[in-house]
Write a protein that binds this DNA or RNA. Structure first.
Lengths: 204, 204
DNA sequence: CCAACCTTCACGAACGATCGTTAAGTTAGA
DNA sequence: TCTAACTTAACGATCGTTCGTGAAGGTTGG
């Protein structure tokens, strides 16, 4: 279990970074939001950079956990490519919507990382990309996905999911459940998913 | 014609903002990059905020000009919806790739704008969204686009195009021309474009 | 049992550096 | 002589970081 002070600090830093961006964020404000003095913050984190690093790490952990849970729910690596891609798209869309601040930091503040820490983060980002790449390539190989451009389709799907963090508002007209369903459908449309051995139209 | 000093300043500010973000950018660095003193900068722009504002305005002007030119090339508002959407996607993809720094500032630094200037920028952003919305709705109305989710498809197409500014490198394996073509195809796939009165397959 | 000690957690004060901005003055061309 | 273009110098504020201090609480040695 993480100490309460540390959790409060991460939450405060998340808000501050999400609102103003890393460069404009003040660690004095972060400490104040967390209800402690500036120096107390240095007891938990050795500086502004490490605060960002911890935030990105924690965000990545949560994201991978979300996707893994959704993947397990459809049967893990043994599921059909369309099921797996759908699970990844659903988990990603939901994560971007439910953790907008977290996601925006993950997506926008990469450039604020120092060189050494950026290297590690880049590796995790590549893993995240593979979450989409694997089922798409499997679908191409099995003949269920017909897109001639798997790489660009993958990037398109990822971009569509990621953008959710920037525009979706829970109090808007669109239910999160509906959005997730639509994104799954759109992703399957983009990779030109057509079930084999059947001429029946896919359900709407 | 803009004074040379002003142009150099905008270029320097663009680089600095793109590399470090607005918050971390230093106007001293910007002035130095432009080859002038800090105070000389104040002769042209009244401060950091106005520098960002000018940059966003100039970027938007260029973007709209690019799209307008591409739209004109296919026949303007009289062209078929698929042609129009293709033109907008092509122009946007090309713009994001050829003006990556410009685009990233347009896409990421909105939050650094003060309230008053943000209002004006929001209006221009809405106009940009309409560039995609109009042909998509026209395609739905004419029966050539069959997507059940025009709004989410539109957001997906826009996100796909915008993401180009973050990943595309001109020295990479993919030609810009190829990327543009593929994005146009993917966009038409996403809105489920099927030409009317013909069973012939669309060209690949 | 108790005194000495260490670690954890927190504080206020101050460091030097850099920030955005302004003032006052100089130069060069119309 | 007027003005645009540009200079150096300095302003106060805020930045991230460091230092020294000390209260609280558990552990250890005699």
């Amino acid at each position: 279990m993480r100490p309460a002070g540390q959790t409060a600090l991460l939450e405060a830093a998340r808000q501050e970074f999400a609102e103003r961006g890393f460069g404009s964020a003040s660690i004095r404000n972060i400490a104040a939001r967390a209800g402690m003095s500036l120096s107390a913050m240095y007891h938990y984190y050795s500086g502004k950079q490490e605060l960002l690093h911890a935030l990105l790490d924690e965000g990545m952990d949560r994201y991978f956990a979300s996707v893994a849970a959704e993947l397990d729910a459809v049967g893990g690596h043994d599921a059909a490519p369309a099921e797996r891609l759908g699970a990844v798209v659903a988990a990603t869309t939901r994560f971007r919507a439910e953790h907008a601040a977290r996601s925006n930091i993950l997506l926008l503040e990469e450039r604020s990382l120092e060189a050494e820490r950026l290297e590690r983060y880049g590796r995790r980002q590549a893993e995240a990309t593979n979450l989409f790449r694997d089922p798409i390539e499997a679908g191409i190989a099995s003949g269920e996905f017909h897109t001639p451009y798997p790489d660009e389709a993958r990037r398109g799907v990822i971009a569509m999911c990621n953008a959710v963090a920037q525009w979706y508002r829970p109090d808007g007209p669109l239910t999160l459940g509906s959005l997730v369903d639509r994104h799954v459908e759109l992703a399957l449309t983009l990779v030109e998913y057509r079930p084999q051995r059947s001429f029946a139209a896919r359900g709407r």
